[in-house]
């Protein structure tokens, strides 16, 4: 175990870890936005909203994320989409995780007691108002854990953008394995950072979950 080498390249892995964090954060935001929109569309009685949402979820949950990234980054130029690796990565990961988040959000909304809707509507609130003021706030509490699971999956999934040359942790690991021929050390360094990022993320999600439960 070459600790000297690990110490020397540590800073590069730390920088790459920061890129991983950035990619993950931006993708999560995109995914949440798409997920919320698609969840509401799927729950809408309007077929023009429902069907595209269902197709979105089915396609992006039913195909490999890697392929989705390749289509966007390598295939994009053919349909007029020229993106930098980082942007393509965030877009691809975001759209992918958005499909999973749709289901997490939709599940939480459906889990809110039916009586809530009935009470709200009988007071005269419209469907939209009911969802916005009565259902969503309650569903928010229930969605934190499944969305948390999605987020952790995303952090690990961010390793895929190394395949489209984003300079994050896995790319850095690959690069240094190729140049130093010391795979175990490079694995350990990346593993360390991934475990750290995931542990922190899990901790934050747990805290968020607890806070919302208390408010109930």
């Amino acid at each position: 175990m070459d600790y000297d080498l690990m110490a020397r390249v540590f800073v590069y892995f730390a920088k790459a870890a920061w890129v991983t964090v950035q990619v993950s954060l931006l993708s999560v935001c995109l995914g949440l936005g798409l997920g919320l929109a698609a969840a509401l569309c799927k729950l809408s009685p309007n077929r023009w909203l429902q069907i595209p949402a269902r197709i979105y979820v089915s396609v992006f949950r039913g195909t490999p994320c890697l392929i989705q990234l390749f289509v966007i980054y390598f295939g994009g130029p053919q349909i007029g989409l020229q993106l930098e690796p980082f942007a393509a990565g965030v877009l691809g990961l975001g759209i992918n995780i958005g499909a999973y988040m749709t289901e997490s959000i939709r599940g939480a909304i459906l889990a809110v007691d039916r009586g809530q809707t009935e009470a709200s509507r009988s007071l005269g609130l419209s469907k939209g108002q009911t969802i916005r003021r009565v259902i969503l706030p309650q569903a928010a509490c229930l969605m934190i854990r499944p969305l948390g699971v999605n987020t952790i999956a995303l952090i690990k999934g961010s390793s895929l953008v190394s395949a489209i040359s984003v300079l994050e942790l896995t790319y850095t690991a690959y690069r240094y394995i190729s140049s130093t021929y010391r795979p175990f050390e490079m694995f350990m360094l990346s593993a360390m950072f991934y475990l750290l990022i995931i542990t922190v993320a899990s901790f934050l999600i747990q805290k968020l979950d607890q806070r919302f439960v208390l408010q109930q």
Binding site: S159, L160, L169, A173, P183, L195
Partner: peptide, 22 residues
């Protein structure tokens, strides 16, 4: 379990593919 759940599959593939020959 903690190690293999907390790291990406791709990284694990690198470990096996590059590490075992070592």
């Amino acid at each position: 379990v903690w190690l293999f759940r907390g790291t990406p599959l791709l990284l694990q593939l690198f470990l096996i593919y590059f590490g075992l020959p070592q």
